[in-house]
Design a protein around this nucleic acid. Structure first.
Lengths: 127, 127, 127, 127
DNA sequence: GTGGTCTAGACCACT
DNA sequence: GTGGTCTAGACCACG
């Protein structure tokens, strides 16, 4: 259910962030749902609590989750969708990087568009 | 002509790699063309020669450039296009990460497909 | 236990690569085993950490070791055995070079075959 | 007839050395035969004369060729076969390096012995 | 001139 | 603690 992989190129905390974002988009996690506590999740994944904390802090900064003192951590009501210009540019550069790498692995523009479509189909299937 | 940006999330040497890959795809650099020497490029970008060397080494590993001892570094004749399964999976994960981030910035599936299309139009314009 | 020799014709980082390959073949290092950290090995060999890093990077490229961020470096599970044609040709040329040199040192074909056999006996002794 | 390849892992001057050693072993070049002058060979191979000079100097040091002032350069009468201990050890290390690399390309001890045998058959065919 | 190796030391990200 | 990036500068081999 929770794939955390030390060999993944993404940092562990990023994998957690991505996983929760994914669950929210898929609808598996809905606004108001409680997410595991830092310690719970850390022991579930057998990783360090600081790593989970870092993921939660980042998610809270992005207003995707809310921590209510004494009660726990919950999926936020209104995931803010604000475009941050410099962040957008960064991600565009990452996208371009990925495209260049895929090009040299023999994938065409159409192949890459298909890859992206596939990602969205996986994400939106359960919505 | 050569944008190297210390604020870019990518490492300096990765920016060089991407830039040269891009030039080759665009056709600005053709097989057999000499690329700037390690020291030349380093002084052009006002970065350290070792950083350029690292980029060139990586490009040589990917068989995009060839080094001829004492003479210089050249665009390779046959850019190999071999799919490495584990590498492909890594990049797919990066793509997914980018999509998730873009989703929370308010971009739809169609917006992202458009972004990717745009990247390819920029790359293939001059080809 | 770890022979690093500045008078060896091989670069320091190559000696490290060869040594680890040897340990893995001999079975002294097994899949999953942790290898010394970059800094540890550097101080053990009284060489610079960057030199060890270069060796480890090369070994990782060859999929002999795996790096897990923040945790350390480990012998990989599945040492890939993929023949790269151009690499094979390079090594054949090196072999030929060695044979020519040995010929002029008075060694016959049989002597050289014996040398090679000896190398393999040393490698496979403990397996 | 003379294969000199800038992409070869061996230095140009080493390729020349190997080539001449090979011709002598094969019997194509016999003691007393004249070899091309430095300038001739340099222009034949379209490389720098200093590179040829370096090869010839090394061959002369190894007593494989003799330069007779004003007449030219000739294959020596008695190629000395003296074992230099430290040199032998160096070449043994190179051999081991090659074996390790070949092992990780999937070649067995027998495969490598066969490779070496093949090299000698090529060398001694015309003898 | 070219690339390649190595050092010493700083700084960062991740766990 | 771990590895990774980057710098500055030395020295070597090759052409």
């Amino acid at each position: 259910m929770f794939n955390i992989d030390p060999r993944d190129p993404r940092a562990l905390y990023e994998q957690i962030i991505d996983h929760i974002k994914e669950q929210v988009i898929k609808g598996t996690l809905k606004p108001g749902d409680q997410v595991p506590s830092v310690r719970q999740l850390a022991s579930m994944l057998t990783i360090n609590a600081n790593t989970v904390m870092k993921a939660y802090n980042e998610l809270e900064r992005q207003q995707l989750i809310e921590t209510i003192r004494g009660k726990g951590t919950f999926i936020a009501q209104l995931p803010e969708k604000a475009i941050n210009e410099s962040q957008l540019i960064s991600i565009q550069k990452e996208l371009k990087s990925s495209c260049l790498a895929l090009h040299y692995m023999g994938l065409s523009k159409e192949d890459v568009l298909e890859e992206v479509s596939q990602i969205y189909e996986d994400l939106l299937r359960e919505e």
